[in-house]
Design a protein around this nucleic acid. Structure first.
Lengths: 108, 108
DNA sequence: AGAACATATGAAGATGTCTTCAATTATGGG
DNA sequence: CCCATAATTGAAGACATCTTCATATGTTCT
């Protein structure tokens, strides 16, 4: 069990919000989900999620800046992967709870 | 331990993104954090987080629509509370992982 | 019913976000 | 060295989001 959030000062709230923002678009969620399954170079990622390569690259920059993913060059390509297990867990938990909340929405 | 996210079709991604969007602004995070500590009427909430009543009300509508909070009228006021424990957990976990990710960011 | 309090709502403006297009940088092979 | 491939970058447009201000709705009390 996690420590309950007692309060959230404006600064912390801003930090958390910034990180969560990274998980708050379909495109980035799909990118992260793919990376959750294993490292991928940008081109393959783009193909896998059905986005333009440039769009993926822009989103990867955001995710990199926020520390959610890392890219390491390998020859011509750059292999992206989730930064660490916290990202994977956060993703799993977000999906899990979202699904449950959505269930609650339908039967009301 | 949670079920790993294997893949995320566009529709599911959109659903999850919509829910996470609700946690992706400082103002809503602070509102939710306050409610995590206990139910509150709008005015007190507004005061507690230092926002205008109208702004809080607008955000509460969003949170209500997404099923994260519920409001029950009690006399003149309407008491808001988190919808269920999934919301509380999601909030806790989001804060927890965000903090850890931010730590990883600084020492690089 | 009228006054006062609590909340919701709508419209509008400022700001932010996402994608696309075009151009640029980086790497490896012939 | 030049070409093809891989990825990044910047600018711009379309669109969404958040707050504010003004107004409306609902509730209680006298």
């Amino acid at each position: 069990m996690r420590q309950p959030v007692e309060d959230l000062d404006p600064q912390s709230a801003a930090n958390v919000a910034e990180t969560l923002q990274a998980l708050a678009t379909p495109s980035r969620l799909r990118i992260l989900a793919k990376l959750r399954a294993g490292p991928l170079p940008v081109t393959e990622l783009a193909e896998a999620v059905g986005m333009e390569q440039s769009a993926v690259s822009h989103q990867l920059r955001l995710l990199r800046t926020l520390g959610l993913v890392t890219g390491t060059r390998n020859g011509r390509s750059i292999i992206y992967r989730l930064y660490d297990n916290h990202v994977a867990q956060l993703l799993d938990e977000a999906v899990y709870h979202s699904e449950h909340l959505r269930l609650g929405l339908t039967d009301r």
